[in-house]
């Protein structure tokens, strides 16, 4: 009984973990290229969730259409934030860029609250479900999972098969060398930052398949924390590492939920949240040198 439940939850964990992975790729891309941690990461996911909600509720369109819209919004926000501040802060102390990205998050949260109020919203994209015997999976979640894989593959192809993608990779691997080879590093920074934000906002659309009524301006904090866990699991500077970190985290999260639910006296939902924080600290504690070297 418990094993069947565990199997079902772990399977769901893989599906959700794929989306977590995609939702963290932008964070890792930005850190990999600019060495900036986007502390406001979750707020950008929240913007994606509201985009998805608006496209579905106000325009009556499938959330599939929300993905390019969200990606575009993210790219635009990324460009605005990059050119207005990040660009000037790259040479300063790390503190400055951390505080700036943190402030972006607050601006987005408060801005969305101004436009949409802080009510909880949600929508249901009903495509039916598939009964797999040990668990039931809505097709909307399958779609989100597939969407994540497709976006990850597209990013891989872009990095490896296009000139623009290869130029960006050259900046990650050797900023000075790339400059010498005629790569416009400033533009690559701007592009990576907005691409990272674009991916993050787009991932917010996919995540709405999993939070039926949880769309709210302050929903992002939770995802910032989760994304950090995923990112340190997979190596902070690698978007693909992040993708696999997402899978691992999805399994850990759903597995631990199932186990916490068996222990009387515990609130499994809150304990799972605490557990993800604990994982974060443990990784940072056990592999601090390794992680610092990744820097």
């Amino acid at each position: 009984m418990i094993l069947e439940q565990l199997a079902g939850n772990l399977f769901q964990g893989v599906v959700l973990g794929t989306v977590y992975g995609m939702a963290t790729m932008g964070l890792s891309l930005i850190f990999g290229v600019l060495k900036v941690v986007n502390v406001g990461h979750g707020a950008f996911i929240m913007v994606g969730a509201f985009t998805s909600f608006a496209v579905f509720e106000y325009l009556g369109l499938s959330p599939v259409f929300a993905i390019p819209v969200a990606f575009g919004i993210g790219m635009a926000l990324g460009m605005i934030f990059y050119y207005s501040s990040i660009r000037r802060l790259l040479k300063g102390p790390e503190l400055a860029s951390l505080l700036a990205t943190f402030s972006f998050g607050v601006i987005l949260e408060e801005g969305v609250k101004f436009l949409f109020t802080s009510d909880f919203r949600g929508f249901n994209w009903d495509l039916g479900k598939i009964d797999m015997g040990f668990t039931v999976l809505p097709y909307a979640k399958v779609a989100a999972c597939l969407g994540s894989v497709i976006i990850a593959v597209l990013l891989y192809l872009w990095f490896n098969k296009t000139r623009a993608g290869m130029a960006m990779r050259s900046v990650v691997e050797d900023g000075v060398g790339a400059r010498v080879c005629g790569v416009n590093v400033d533009w690559e920074y701007a592009l990576s930052f907005s691409l990272g934000i674009g991916l993050t906002v787009a991932s917010g659309v996919l995540l709405t398949m999993f939070v039926s009524v949880g769309i709210n301006p302050y929903m992002g904090g939770e995802y910032t924390l989760k994304a950090f866990v995923v990112a340190v699991l997979g190596g902070l500077a690698s978007p693909y590492g992040a993708f696999f970190g997402g899978l691992v985290f999805g399994l850990l999260e759903n597995g631990s939920y199932t186990l916490f639910a068996q222990i009387p006296g515990l609130e499994p939902f809150a304990m799972t949240r605490f557990f993800s924080f604990l994982i974060l600290l443990l990784i940072l504690l056990l592999r601090p040198t390794g992680l610092l070297k990744a820097k």
Binding site: F31, K35, V36, V37, V39, E94, L95, L98, T224, L225, F228, A231, V232, L236, S276, F277, L280, L281, L284, P288, L291, L292, K295
Partner: peptide, 11 residues
């Protein structure tokens, strides 16, 4: 250091 400190404390 720096970024990792922020990551460790934000949660």
């Amino acid at each position: 250091r720096g970024a990792y400190f922020a990551i460790a404390t934000i949660g």
